[in-house]
């Protein structure tokens, strides 16, 4: 369980959240929705431990994620609209660099399996600079497969399905399904409410903010 308590987050001069409370349940998908500029990405970056809080705490069970940051990020996969892919490297090299950066073992077999899980095995040797947006997103999503080999508890995904076609969307849903099977927790910010079919609940930022005002 992830407890967000009295969060106040400021970006520049604008207060995006003030005294925001929520609970993220383990073993479920939390779908964060809200209109543009409502702070979906900011919230995700705060949960990942990137954006510092003005006030409040984010606790995983009893541990504060900012105080135990290294432990928290170790079992976490964060993916946002910037994919974290170097355009000077190929799809496979990018995945290999990411794996070794995370401290996990990497070999041809693992990379092949991961790329296969998003239907990218044909594009392994393609440079990112030559990839379309959809291919880039799939190359980034191939990291999710690593959760089935190493210990990963959380996925934090920001708009993961925007550029995907229907075939890749099916593969993405399969990854989500398998991750929930092994008791993983997923937090997704998306406009598209149909990407997750079961074991999910939504966190509507607009609703939550409105309730507090009234």
């Amino acid at each position: 369980m992830l407890y967000l308590k009295d969060l106040t987050i400021q970006r520049g001069n604008k207060i995006v959240f003030s005294n925001f409370n929520a609970v993220i349940r383990s073993g479920y998908t939390t779908l964060i929705k809200g209109k543009n500029g409502s702070g979906k990405s900011t919230l995700l970056r705060a949960i990942a431990g990137f954006t510092p809080l003005e006030r409040g705490t984010i606790k995983q069970d009893k541990k504060d994620i900012f105080e135990n940051n290294e432990e928290w990020v170790k079992n976490l996969i964060f993916l946002d609209t910037k994919n974290g892919l170097s355009k000077d490297l190929t799809v496979a090299e990018n995945l290999n660099a990411w794996l070794t950066m995370k401290g996990w073992s990497s070999n041809k077999e693992i990379i092949k399996m991961a790329l296969k899980s998003v239907g990218m095995e044909k594009y392994a040797e393609l440079y990112i600079s030559q990839c379309s947006e959809g291919l880039k997103k799939r190359a980034a999503l191939s990291r999710l497969y690593i959760s089935f080999i190493n210990k990963v508890d959380f996925w934090i995904l920001d708009e993961p399905t925007n550029e995907l076609d229907t075939t890749s969307l099916v593969l993405f849903k399969k990854l989500v399904f398998n991750f929930l099977e092994q008791k993983g927790t997923i937090i997704i910010a998306s406009h598209d409410q149909t990407i997750i079919e079961k074991n999910f609940y939504t966190l509507d930022l607009d609703e939550l903010k409105k309730q507090r005002v009234s």
Binding site: A48, V73, L76, F78, K82, G84, L85, K87, M101
Partner: peptide, 10 residues
């Protein structure tokens, strides 16, 4: 390209 975000989860 977002690699620094990924590095932050190293």
């Amino acid at each position: 390209n977002g690699w620094l975000d990924q590095i932050a989860t190293s």
